[in-house]
Write a protein that binds this DNA or RNA. Structure first.
Lengths: 181, 181, 181, 181
DNA sequence: AATGAATGAGGGTTCATTCAT
DNA sequence: TATGAATGAACCCTCATTCAT
């Protein structure tokens, strides 16, 4: 139920999984305590459902921000911009995904693994098009994901920098590295 | 007290903060339950002390891995290598630092903020020496930290790649970016 | 309503009153949860109705097993045989009657009190016909009922001895006692 | 802990297993709720411990009431007298043992099975001494146990007849049966 | 009459913390 | 300082019952 999922996002984001209470969720959702169990079998279950829901939204936010057939670097820039904007509007996502490591480690890995895979596919496409250098693989995807995630934490969740500026900054590393030429 | 901290590292690493119990810590430490409170005032307090302890160890692991007066990129490479080796031997560190976000958000920010600051200082030094390009600032430090942290999670904690290989790979991004030339 | 009573007999017999659920009853009966309350006002009510129903069946099973104008001992033998056969086919009856003590003590007493009364009436008839000794009263009826109930528990519900053999054995006690002559 | 067991006997006897509450037990015992779990791991566990405790007390009550080397019938009389007196002072025992069927069926069977075995051993001894007729076996033991139990329910728990009178009445059945001679 | 989603009181259990020894 | 039994607040979950459709 949408109302419960949305309430759970707020409750879990605010208190974390263990401090969050079913009562808190249903109060925010405006339903009776018992109604929770009409839709979810346990606190764990709604948490997992929420992670899945948010994971999908993140993916969609990054995906829908880029157009077809952009150059590889522009694709990365657009993805990151989309992600940063989403994170700025859903600041709770970091706490929820992070806590997932403790509540449902499988989903936690799944989330990052599949995100990395998507980045890697984009890298492969860039290589195929001759825009990116050979040899980029899974580890590069993880490195890029790490950059993006931490920039999001620092500048979308904790701070509120312009998404484009942060994205350009990350892009410049991918384009030129950090060495003086 | 050392015994308790070490036991806490294992207990928290294994179960996470909320599932961990004082009983579990004292059992591992071989002390009586009540003795715990001779050294720490609460579960939160030992957790914070532990985060501080580990945070220092991480810093030291990265620091001691690099020699004085290396070129800037080599300094980054050595720091990451040191960090990856430490993470491989203390796989619990990720869970503990991550959960810190929920238990003691201040320490969580503190940990990453100060790590970023150290990276930034190294970047500034590199710029000063004319090895790194102008304009590198806090955000670049966060981007680099994000790369390092995620590579550590994927290849030191979940996998067991050679620290040098991963560090070289990250170094190549900083050196050349990912674009074909 | 019959459907619900039959389903309740199975559900209560299998799980006991407290572990049984209205949902379980309606599922077995093939009706909707809400329909339950068209026929019964509460879980207690259907339980009481069921006890009453079973109590009547037990009485009828014992009554219909004996013919008119049998000698007193033969009447007891036939009653017990009928009861044992009924119990073997309705093993749930013990659990249901027993649990009645907790759910509806009045029905519980009522069941045994009226059973004892029927035995006592048969004893009185036997005395009147000069077949049984004087002085047999309510307590003897309870003693006989106790014998019958426990033999039923042991050999009809838990075991599966021949009803006739058990009935003969009980009859021999009533006929001769247990003393060597 | 004795206090908790005694309190549990009262609480379970009064409310039955399911309606009884741990809070009720600790309130009666005068301890804090949490202390319950220092001694018992669950509501089930204390219930089982209580059944075991009471089962032992019943056995002891019956055993200690008879002297060595009494004639077989006198042994039965004394045992029943002891049991009736115990039941009169511990009226809750019936409800507790009965409910055991639902909470811990194994203990329930165990209780009656071992009681029957003790009666049977006494019967065998009586046969050996030439006082009782041949052929008395397990089923006769169950019949006698059933008599005793039901007489206890009716006259020790629900009523308050003299134990000796009830025991003599039961004895008369074992001695002479119920037939007129 | 039939349906089944919604309701919310109630209780078992955990475990950080205290404190008398 | 060390010990561990005692404490009690807090919370997840169940399920009989209601009621709008």
């Amino acid at each position: 139920m949408r109302k419960l999922l949305d309430a759970a996002a707020v409750e879990f984001g605010e208190h974390g999984f263990h401090e969050a209470s079913i009562t808190g969720i249903t109060r925010r959702a405006g339903t009776a305590l018992g109604s929770f169990y009409t839709y979810f079998n346990s606190k764990d279950e709604i948490f997992r459902a929420l992670v899945d829901d948010l994971s999908g939204k993140v993916r969609e936010a990054a995906r829908s921000a880029r157009q077809q057939d952009l150059p590889a670097l522009e694709t990365e820039r657009a993805s990151l911009t989309g992600f940063l904007r989403f994170a700025a509007e859903h600041k709770e996502i970091y706490r929820i995904i992070d806590e997932c490591e403790f509540v449902d480690p499988a989903s936690f890995r799944q989330h990052y693994q599949s995100t990395a895979t998507r980045i890697r596919e984009r890298l492969s496409e860039g290589i195929r098009k001759g825009e990116l250098r050979e040899g980029l693989g899974e580890a590069h995807a993880w490195a890029i994901m790490g950059m993006n995630v931490f920039l999001g934490l620092r500048y979308a969740v904790w701070g509120d920098a312009e998404a484009e500026e942060i994205a350009e900054l990350a892009n410049s590393i991918l384009r030129d590295g950090i060495v003086k030429r």
